[in-house]
């Protein structure tokens, strides 16, 4: 078998370039638009201001003031909120990873096989309609409150929207690229990592956002049913104590973690894997 790289073996020849062509433009770092920072700050300001007006005019224990909420946040942070959050975040990440891997396999299978689609599509549609509360109850009943139950509850609730997104993304892949991969004999791994996954990125990211938001809701429910640690457990304790400030404090801390995951992980991944889209089209 010849190993001659043909094109390099052919004589090089001068090529006239199109007028004006030079080095390709590369995506540059663009400045941050003011609304990117000011928009969320404005929202926070409006919510905090509105709450302050409500709390100070109602004089009800059900509407604690900003100072009380701030104290509660300080207290839970001082009492080791990080380890509590970590327990919950690990459960979500394990369950979500399980759902993510299963969804890629199931979604691609559905797009490539009519039989797989006929079998899995009803399951996905039913899965989408089952309330998170049901997954939480069943997981706790069947698998208990050790790690398996919460992780499976998260996986079961996150998987259906992810599968649907992967399936729709796989159907949208240009058939011409699949033919190209066939004639150039891309192996299975190359097809998956260099064709399918990059083509699915926008669908995976939107599925990940939806799946993660469902996961947070489900994990809190599972932990409220009797777990001895985690954000759901702490919320349940605060609810039992009628401590509205602590409920709000945990909600705020939890929300901050969500924002960090969105901006710190998802958006960074999105920027990196879709940087080719930002390149100018000649």
């Amino acid at each position: 078998m010849s190993t001659r790289p043909t094109a390099s073996a052919g004589a090089s020849f001068p090529v006239r370039r199109p007028a004006g062509s030079g080095r390709s433009p590369r995506p540059g770092r663009r400045g941050i638009a003011p609304e990117t920072i000011l928009g969320p700050l404005l929202l926070v300001g409006l919510v905090v201001g509105g709450w302050h007006v409500m709390a100070s005019t109602s004089d009800s224990t059900l509407l604690p003031g900003l100072g009380e909420i701030g104290d509660a946040i300080g207290r839970i942070v001082g009492d080791g909120a990080a380890s509590t959050l970590w327990v919950t975040v690990v459960r979500v990440l394990l369950g979500f990873t399980l759902a993510f891997v299963a969804a890629i396999a199931a979604g691609l299978l559905m797009a490539r096989s009519r039989w797989a689609r006929a079998i899995l599509e009803p399951a996905v549609l039913i899965g989408l309609t089952v309330p998170g509360l049901v997954w939480a109850l069943l997981a706790v009943i069947w698998f208990g409150l050790a790690q398996t139950g919460p992780v499976l509850a998260v996986a079961l609730s996150a998987a259906p929207p992810l599968v649907l997104n992967v399936y729709q993304g796989a159907k949208a892949v240009d058939p011409g690229l699949i033919e190209m991969a066939h004639v150039f004999r891309f192996d299975r791994r190359t097809r998956l990592t260099r064709l399918w996954l990059p083509a699915l990125v926008p669908f995976l990211l939107s599925g990940a956002r939806l799946g993660l938001s469902l996961s947070w809701k489900v994990i809190v429910l599972v932990e409220m049913f009797g777990a001895s640690e985690g954000v759901g457990y702490e919320l349940n304790t605060a609810f039992s104590d009628q401590d509205v400030a602590a409920v709000l404090a945990w909600t705020i801390v939890f929300g901050v973690v969500m924002v960090l995951i969105e901006y710190g992980i998802l958006r960074t991944v999105e920027r990196r894997v879709t940087r080719w889209r930002k390149a100018a089209i000649v």
Binding site: P5, S8, V15, R16, R17
Partner: peptide
């Protein structure tokens, strides 16, 4: 090994690290 030379042979030596979306139809 021969990829860069092959691309230079078709006049794309200045575009090796470019994404296809930045190229014209002919390129």
């Amino acid at each position: 090994d021969g990829v860069d030379d092959a691309l230079r042979d078709v006049g794309l030596g200045d575009h090796l690290d470019a994404f296809p979306t930045t190229l014209s139809g002919g390129q």
